[in-house]
Simulated assay, not measured.
Amino acid sequence: MNAEFRETVWARHSNPKSGWSRLAGGFVIVAALYHRKWRLMALTILFLAINPVLFREPSEESDDWMYKVVRAEERWTNDGNRLIGLGYPQILNTVSIPVGLYGLCAAYKQKPISTVVFSLVSQALNQWCMKEIIDYYEKVDSH
C-alpha cells in the first residue's frame, strides 16, 4: 500500500462515525452468530472490511474518543510499534484476541452469559490498550 493511499485511509477512518460503527459492528457479528443470522454476519463483515474508507475525512481535529483512538493508532504504527505483542500496552490487545474468540465460541454454542461477558471483556481490553496509546502520545506531545 503506497503512503498516499495509506494516509487517505487513516484520514477517512479517523471520522468518529467510522470507529464507532466498527465497534458496533463487532457486537453485531456476535449477535448474528448467536442467532444464526448468517446473511447479517456476512454483510457486517463486508461492512467492517470497507468501513475505513466509507466516511469522509473530518474537517478538523476532534475531541471524540474514536478520533483520538484512530490517530493514536496511526502514530503508534507509523512509529514502528505493533498493536499486538507482549510489551505494554500491546499485551492488552494480545489478550483480547483469545478472549474475543472465546466470546465467539460461546455465541456459536448459544451461551448467553459467556457470550456477553467475554465479548465485553475483549472489547474493554482493546479500548484499554487504545487509552494507553492515546495517553502516551498526549504525554509525549505535552513535553
Rank of each mutant, 00 (worst) to 15 (best):
Met1Thr: 07
Met1Asp: 07
Met1His: 07
Asn2Gly: 15
Glu4Asn: 11
Phe5Val: 15
Phe5Gln: 13
Arg12Tyr: 04
Arg12Lys: 15
Arg12Glu: 06
His13Ser: 09
Asn15Glu: 09
Pro16Ile: 08
Arg22Pro: 00
Gly26Cys: 10
Gly26Phe: 11
Val28Ile: 15
Val30Met: 07
Ala31Ile: 11
Tyr34Lys: 07
Tyr34Arg: 04
His35Thr: 12
Arg36His: 15
Arg36Met: 06
Trp38Ile: 05
Met41His: 02
Met41Arg: 12
Ala42Lys: 10
Leu43Thr: 05
Leu43Met: 12
Thr44Tyr: 04
Ile45Trp: 02
Ile45Arg: 08
Leu48Trp: 02
Phe55Lys: 00
Arg56Thr: 09
Glu57Gly: 03
Glu57Ile: 08
Glu57Asn: 03
Pro58Thr: 08
Glu61Phe: 00
Asp64Lys: 13
Glu73Met: 08
Trp76Leu: 02
Thr77Ile: 13
Asn81Trp: 00
Arg82Gln: 09
Leu83Arg: 12
Leu83Asp: 00
Leu83Asn: 07
Gly85Phe: 01
Gly85Ile: 05
Gly87Asn: 14
Tyr88Ser: 12
Pro89Phe: 09
Pro89Glu: 09
Gln90Glu: 14
Ile91Tyr: 07
Asn93Lys: 02
Asn93Asp: 14
Thr94Ser: 15
Thr94Cys: 10
Ile97Asp: 06
Ile97Thr: 13
Pro98Cys: 13
Tyr102Thr: 05
Tyr102Leu: 11
Tyr102Ser: 06
Gly103Met: 01
Cys105Trp: 14
Tyr108Asp: 09
Lys109Ser: 10
Gln110Glu: 15
Pro112Val: 07
Ile113Ala: 11
Leu120Tyr: 01
Val121Gln: 02
Ser122Met: 08
Ser122Ile: 07
Gln123Leu: 11
Ala124Ile: 12
Asn126Trp: 02
Trp128Asp: 00
Lys131Val: 07
Ile134Val: 15
Glu138Arg: 09
Val140Pro: 00
His143Phe: 05
His143Asn: 14
